[in-house]
Amino acid sequence: MDNKEQIKQILLDGFIEVENGNELENDTPLISSGILDSISILQLIDTLEKTFEIGFEAHEIDRDKFDSIDLINQLIVDKKQ
């Protein structure tokens, strides 16, 4: 599974209820669209840190940077480098 598929799986497992996983696309806005609420975002960040073995600094947690699977993937790629 690549990063994006893994992020999508995390979202579908614990954060977004859809009948058909295809409804959630890599560029679907997650936060600005209201799909994730502010408390879910905190939990999502915790899960991402554990799954990808990375850590976000407090000032790096900017909601706009977590707004889609594509953007989250970019953050993880940058972190891993």
Binding site: V18, L24, G34
Partner: peptide
């Protein structure tokens, strides 16, 4: 409708804390 469509619709009409969870 898909849940995602309904969330996005709610987000355009309602203040964020009023958006249904499900």
């Amino acid at each position: 409708c898909s849940n995602i469509t309904l969330k996005i619709y709610s987000n355009n009409q309602l203040i964020k804390y009023m958006i249904p969870d499900d």
